[in-house]
Simulated scan of single mutants.
Amino acid sequence: MSSLALYESMSTLSAAMVEAARANDWDRLVKLEREMAASRDGILRAAGASQEPLGAAEAARKAELIAAMLENDVEIRQHVEPWLTSVRKLLSGTARDRAVRAAYGAFGP
């Protein structure tokens, strides 16, 4: 697969990640992120192999795809950050509860 085709694939995955983030479908988002990482690894492998340089039109398309993925990343983060903040609060509260129970010898739920 050419590097440009890999960028096209990553752009499609990135758009799907936005949809998953909008829907708060965290399991799907994680799955898509793994697929994105595999595509990224493919690009890195392709960069290590000798390939023909991209023409002007292909280079412009690659730049468009990268810009779109960066925009998608911003939106994904807008959806994920509040969720992560709430998870952090939940986890820190749980850890604090355990510390209090341990300090005062209270065991149980």
Rank of each mutant, 00 (worst) to 15 (best):
V18S: 06
D25S: 04
G48P: 03
G105R: 00
E75R: 03
S2F: 04
R22W: 07
L4G: 00
V100F: 13
R96Y: 11
Y7L: 08
V87K: 06
T12V: 06
M17H: 02
S14Y: 04
S3M: 14
D73E: 15
A106N: 09
W83N: 03
M10W: 14
A103S: 04
D25V: 00
I66C: 12
A103L: 12
N24V: 03
I66L: 11
R22P: 07
R22N: 13
A68F: 06
N24C: 10
A47M: 15
A16I: 09
S9H: 10
A16M: 11
P109T: 08
D41Y: 02
L13C: 06
E58A: 02
M69F: 11
M1K: 06
Y7V: 03
F107R: 07
M1T: 02
M10N: 05
P109Y: 14
D97M: 07
E64P: 05
A63Y: 07
E52P: 10
E8V: 03
Q78M: 14
A5F: 07
T85M: 05
A67W: 08
A103Y: 08
H79L: 00
V87W: 06
R101M: 04
S11V: 00
R22E: 10
G105D: 06
P82V: 00
R40I: 12
A56Y: 05
R88V: 01
M17I: 06
D25F: 06
V18L: 12
G93T: 00
G42A: 10
W83R: 00
G105V: 04
A95V: 05
E71W: 01
A102L: 15
V18W: 02
V74M: 09
